[in-house]
């Protein structure tokens, strides 16, 4: 469970989040908002990538300020641009990367990499250089690398923004089938189908919080959509 209490965050003298207090325990939570609304910063609070200027964020009781490392082991994070998330030159090496920093034995790493290749339909791409993958394949690899470390929660920051329509659908399906609770930041309304709860951010404030139909209607009105 994520607990965000009276959080404010500033970059220099620019306030990006203010007065945010919320508890997240649902299986599928979405976060929407315009560019610059603070939603990406909110996502980064959840695994301690960003520590709030004031207020506290805890994950299952672990404070991101003090236990950042433990929190990050618990909360996987998938970024918008897979190119910037894949850090090793080949598919198998990238899958192994996160595991190497979990203190696992070499045999166990190899076994989990094989498992991840199989589970994610990446088996044929084992030794493929990452830069030769398609956009959709890259995002699948990025997600697979995160899942290989068996996080308890997964946070997605606009996971489909860079993708074409077909890849978007594939990634939506991957997210829908996840067992872990997820928090997804997205502009993509299709992706949010079947979610339990949607938060709406505007200018650094949490302005709506409720079931998807209510929140999304509010969001569309806010955006001036007709």
């Amino acid at each position: 469970m994520f607990r965000i209490e009276k959080v404010e965050h500033r970059y220099g003298d620019r306030t990006v989040l203010q007065d945010v207090s919320v508890e997240l325990s649902e299986r599928r939570v979405a976060v929407v908002g315009a560019n610059g609304s603070g939603k990406s910063t909110f996502a980064r609070l959840l695994n301690g990538l960003v520590v709030p200027t004031s207020g506290t964020v805890t994950v299952d009781g672990l404070d991101t300020r003090k236990d950042g490392r433990k929190v990050r082991a618990r909360v996987g994070f998938v970024f918008q641009d897979p190119d910037l998330q894949i850090v090793m030159p080949t598919v198998a090496e990238d899958l192994a990367f996160g595991l190497k920093h979990r203190g696992l034995s070499k045999a166990e790493i190899d076994q989990r990499v094989e498992q991840a290749l199989e589970d994610n339909g990446l088996g044929d791409l084992r030794d493929q250089p990452a830069h030769l993958l398609s956009g959709g394949q890259k995002q699948r690899l990025a997600i697979a690398s995160v899942l290989a470390t068996a996080p308890r929660y997964v946070v997605f920051d606009e996971p489909t923004t860079m993708l074409d329509l077909r890849s978007k659908r594939q990634i939506s399906r991957v997210i829908a089938e996840l067992e872990q609770p997820v928090v997804v930041v997205s502009h993509d309304m299709d992706l949010l189908e079947g979610f339990d709860r949607v938060l709406v951010f505007d200018e650094g404030r949490l302005v709506a919080d409720g079931p998807p139909d209510v929140s999304i209607a509010f969001y569309l009105e806010l955006m001036g959509a007709c």
Binding site: L49, R72, G76, F79, D81, L84, Q85, H101, S145
Partner: peptide
């Protein structure tokens, strides 16, 4: 700028 994003991703992936 890309390097800054990658270093954030490394941190997110448990690289300490």
């Amino acid at each position: 700028t890309m390097a800054d994003a990658i270093s954030e991703a490394l941190d997110a992936r448990g690289f300490e």
